[in-house]
Design a protein around this nucleic acid. Structure first.
Lengths: 195, 195, 195, 195
DNA sequence: TATGAATGAGGATTCATTCAT
DNA sequence: GATGAATGAATCCTCATTCAT
């Protein structure tokens, strides 16, 4: 009934990623040292290299396994047959919740190393992936006639970036209000609009 | 008509800030070393400390004097008596232009050190200032009855964050489309909306 | 007819020494890590310590059991009753062949760790032994009146070192020419010689 | 009358190379750490990098500036118009003297890093250069009719390698005897020779 | 036998900063 | 003003070795 060797190893790996996430959040990726992370996890620096071949690998793994990608996928899957107005509220609210639960992730992204090209590139991919998922959903609603034709990448970026920036600057965004703006706009008389 | 001592000093200071901005953009704040910056400016590391008392001071000074705050202020001032629909297009387009012209600034912000608390705090202030300026404008248009009542901070964040994120992820945002979304929304039938 | 426990163990030991020799040749003694050697042998680092009590022991064992001592002994034994001129050609040629076949040995010697005194000492013994064997042969030929009296250690060193250095610097030595020089000299008129 | 800044810097550089040579000799190139070398010179590790951009550069610089190349060049230049028998005695004796004075050099070469390809290559070049200088001299004597036609590279290698190996194995070679063997050979009756 | 998790010391290197010149 | 030598601490990472499983 005791944990097996493999289970213990898996726990260690998990613990190291937890520790990494915490330290990245507190000090940023560049500011976090392997020593910091090891200490946070209560192990020796050398052990980190037993589980992750380099700091770069550690960062990209944390990003892949702990990023909001998996969570966002769930949210969109679950919300497949509801009206867009509800779905977007769920997505934005859920997204904000994920970020709130893992303030570290936002810091991870915004504080992402520019001093390490590999990490920087991974960071970009990661954001683009998330945005593409949301944009795909928006496009499908436009095709379904529920949303007017629009640049879904722009709308997705707006939803995503606004929430993230709100967290980053410690100015929480009201998710409902954000969805309202993106769905209904802010203009009183539509006729006033001209490019 | 030779330059005076003070002018020379001012030129050096300017040159050092130019160099710092360039290196920050290329390598991020944490990745930039004083040696790098000095080399970029064609001087020795020691001299940097004649003009800026520490790396932290150098960063915060660059941020204050070279941030997009001043530019944003200009843009909003110029656009003071035009309809919101036009003003926002100008502001967003102009903002995007500023960022495009100074990709360094975006990098400076996104790549801002989390490993140095003082720098991190300065970064936050700087973003909040910009957003507040835009929100003030939006609020004034709502009071004037041109825009419907809405959370201006959220809308300002959306405009600001979306453009910035687009630059950051090398996925340029269509400014017109962004303004259209924020002003007109994306929903086909307003009646479909419910919180 | 299956292999016994002892045979298996012996095979493992042999495999580990093969792996060690290969890695030493490729990276030098200092550059080779236990992990490298274990990987080369397809086992885990821990197992190496089952067969060899330390890296030092592994190196000295490889040196003793795989050094060219054994091969040199064979060459000299086979060549026991032929004229010196033929014997030396055989010995030098054979020696060069041994080195060519086991470039690893040359690297092992030349790349021998100075950072570990024990290994360094073992290395010295090993070379001195080889040289002594060749010198013994030369002395016996001088006593037999075939060679003029000379310092056999010097001649042996010359033969040995020249071939080895040639291999080390990737400049193969013509064995026949080396023997010719050591047996006949290079001077046109012997009378020209004076100390 | 005080030393200038440049002079002091030059002294430091010299002192660092002295220290490096000493530590390389004592522990081998791989065994020598920058910390060791800095301590030997009485400075901080960081300073080593102010003068030499990497450990590799330090090693190759020491080799180039302190190797026996410069010394060998002098010996051959001085010896230009003397009979080969005398010249070679001078060269071999002088060479042995250089090695005796800088036992470190021999260790440097023999202990040369195999774990660093760049250093290993530099080491090879360095030996080949020295050998080429001696071979050129031998060829010129053969053309002058003083030495019989022979493979000068082989003879040069023999002279060079034998002395070096003697030092390396702490078995000093009698320089006179070595020259005698290479000039006169060891065979009693030349007619006995056959390939 | 064999594994691979874990350690702790040490490796090369970089860096912000100071200060004599 | 300007230089660049010097520091010392911190960085990522590697390694020989041990030991519970």
């Amino acid at each position: 009934m005791g944990t097996t060797r493999d289970e213990q190893a898996e726990q260690r790996r998990t613990a190291l990623m937890d520790a990494a996430l915490a330290v990245f959040a507190a000090k940023g990726v560049d500011g976090a040292s392997i020593k910091n992370i090891a200490a946070e996890a209560g192990v020796t620096p050398g052990l980190v290299y037993h589980y992750f071949e380099s700091k770069t690998h550690l960062v990209t793994t944390v990003l892949r396994e702990r990023g909001f990608g998996p969570r966002l996928r769930e949210l969109l899957a679950e919300a497949a047959d509801k009206p867009a107005t509800e779905v977007l509220s769920l997505v934005v609210g859920g997204f904000q919740q994920v970020l709130a639960d893992n303030a570290q992730l936002v810091e991870l992204f915004f504080g992402a190393s520019r001093s390490n090209d590999e990490i920087h590139a991974a960071m970009g991919d990661f954001v683009r992936d998330g945005r593409a998922m949301l944009a795909d959903y928006l496009r499908s609603r436009a095709e379904a006639g529920e949303l007017r034709p629009h640049d879904a990448e722009v709308a997705a970026t707006a939803l995503f970036a606004t929430v993230a920036m709100g967290v980053r600057t410690a100015t929480p965004i009201d998710a409902g209000e954000l969805v309202r703006i993106v769905l209904l706009g802010t203009l009183v008389r539509e006729g006033d609009f001209h490019d």
